[in-house]
Design a protein around this nucleic acid. Structure first.
Lengths: 189, 189
DNA sequence: TTGACAAGACCGTCCAGACGGTACAGTAAA
DNA sequence: TTTACTGTACCGTCTGGACGGTCTTGTCAA
């Protein structure tokens, strides 16, 4: 069956992400991942019969983690509107120093089709937010700004200072919140 | 006669961008670029002695074009505030279907350091906008949203419909414009 | 006008190395 | 015995790059 001793699988996936981050996305070779994971190349190929499967594993793990984080955030932050929850979650995500998903570049280089699951996931997420947000304009602005934050994090771009990031998030929450307030009670100058 | 003028340089650069876009960033090999440009590999290596130089050429051309576009846009759109000009320019950029700068992925895979010129350029641009915009919050939101738009364009992600894109741009211009109005009414120079 | 010649622009071929992947024998625990 | 690997050897392919040769153009003296 599946996951009996999935220790290696996770280790390999984490190692792949580490290699991509530290040695650059172009250096993500099977040998590098294997040695980084403390696993022989044979063992790697046993868990992931092909490099494409490795990439697929990375994508699936990424999506799974994202979905789970969204779910728990929705539960914990229940009192807020979904857009605000998403903003806060994404901002926290991007707060972490390491560009967690730079393996994406490797995946794209390998085969651009690896992006399609991520793209459809994003689209579904956006559609869901669209259904849960009253003001389309606020949603668009906030969603795109968060996308920009993600982009900068992915490219390891440090254009914004910490203060500016916080101010941005506050502004976005204000925008997201104002739409909520409009919906609840149209009382704001 | 064959075009022996530095014509070849531009042709090669364009060919490289085409190959990266059409065959995927991972297939950006010297042979592919050479054949696409209608140039032998030797000829390519003559113009760009190494693959790194090719990438550098792509980056420099990208930055040069961007700067020039910004300049002409500033001249033509003189009556508007700089942030609005930037928003409009970027939106137009992202509107074009064909030329994603997907060669960036190849460059990153080759060596992440190729991003540093682009990163410093972005930072300078942001600093300049910061100096020219009265309301930091508006700037942050608009700049990041545009960054998000760029990101989606780069990843060839079609989450937004055309109407939504237009609505987004209108909203951003509104946000940018309101800061301008504040500046105009509150402080006169 | 012509011929010689140097420099620039480009071609075609070859090569060492890295990579993904295969095959297979061995091993230690459950 | 099966599962989950390890370790090594190996193959075919692709890639960046080096190299020497070739064609074109500009220059200048005679």
């Amino acid at each position: 069956m599946r996951a009996q001793r999935p220790n290696s699988r996770e280790k390999i996936l984490a190692a792949a992400a580490d290699v991509a981050r530290e040695s650059g996305p172009g250096s993500l070779s099977l040998d590098a991942v294997a040695s980084r994971a403390g696993v022989s190349k044979g063992g790697l190929l046993y868990n992931f019969p092909t490099k494409a499967k490795l990439m697929q594993g990375l994508v699936e793990g990424y999506l799974r983690d994202f979905e789970q984080a969204l779910e728990t955030a929705s539960s914990n932050d229940n009192d807020k509107n979904p857009l605000a929850v998403y903003i806060r979650l994404s901002a926290d995500d991007c707060e972490e120093k390491r560009p967690s998903a730079s393996w994406i570049f490797s995946a794209i280089a390998e085969d651009p089709d690896f992006m399609t699951p991520i793209k459809t996931f994003r689209r579904q997420l956006f559609e869901r937010l669209k259904g849960e947000t009253s003001d389309l304009k606020s949603l668009l602005v906030c969603y795109l700004a968060i996308e920009g934050l993600r982009s900068m994090n992915l490219f390891d771009s440090d254009v914004l200072s910490k203060d500016e990031r916080e101010l941005l998030v506050a502004s976005l929450l204000e925008i997201a919140g104002s739409s909520d307030a409009e919906q609840a009670s149209a009382t704001q100058s």
